[in-house]
């Protein structure tokens, strides 16, 4: 059977007919063309597919589409405002927090949620927030520094 759902992605509603077992990462990438949300481990470990569900980070590889019905999903494509990068995106650029970039959207979403909830996190709060996102290139230091730089 299929289920009719409405996914509000980056503020825009999408009415879709989905298999109940379809994951949001697949829908974002394959049906909505939002390929900034990356896919890797498919078991919630790596964090590459992190999106915000009602402002909180979740693994979109473990999020079934019907469970997101009617809820707000935000992806990396929704971080810009009027074509301008968010301060966090800008900080990732200037602090060298991006290398291969595959983990970057996941880190951006995780840190965006942190900063919205806690605009002045301490370094250990930053580390705690991103502890579940894997990066194989940077060693995390510059990612942490980038987040720290926008805490005002």
């Amino acid at each position: 059977m299929t289920v009719d759902v409405t996914l509000n992605v980056n503020g825009r509603p999408h009415s879709l007919s989905v298999e109940p077992t379809e994951t949001v990462v697949g829908i974002l990438r394959e049906r909505l063309g939002l390929t900034g949300t990356h896919k890797d481990c498919s078991m919630g470990v790596c964090g590459a597919c992190t999106v915000l569900l009602d402002d909180r980070p979740v693994s979109s590889c473990l999020l079934l589409a019907p469970q997101a019905d009617g809820r707000e999903i935000r992806t990396v494509e929704g971080l810009e405002r009027d074509g301008r990068l968010s301060p966090l995106q800008q900080a990732f650029l200037t602090h060298g927090a991006v290398q291969c970039g595959y983990c970057t959207p996941g880190f951006l979403m995780t840190a965006t949620a942190l900063l919205e909830e806690n605009p002045k996190p301490t370094r250990s709060e930053i580390v705690e927030a991103i502890k579940g996102n894997l990066c194989r290139c940077t060693g995390y230091k510059k990612i942490i520094e980038a987040v720290e730089s926008v805490t005002g």
Binding site: L34, V76, F92, G96
Partner: peptide
């Protein structure tokens, strides 16, 4: 100089073309 990477603009936007993104 600490010149920012020329590909990071695409990467922070989620617009860089990894092969798996191409349809």
């Amino acid at each position: 100089m600490r010149i920012p990477r020329n590909d990071a603009l695409y990467k922070v936007r989620g617009r860089a073309r990894y092969a798996g993104n191409i349809e």
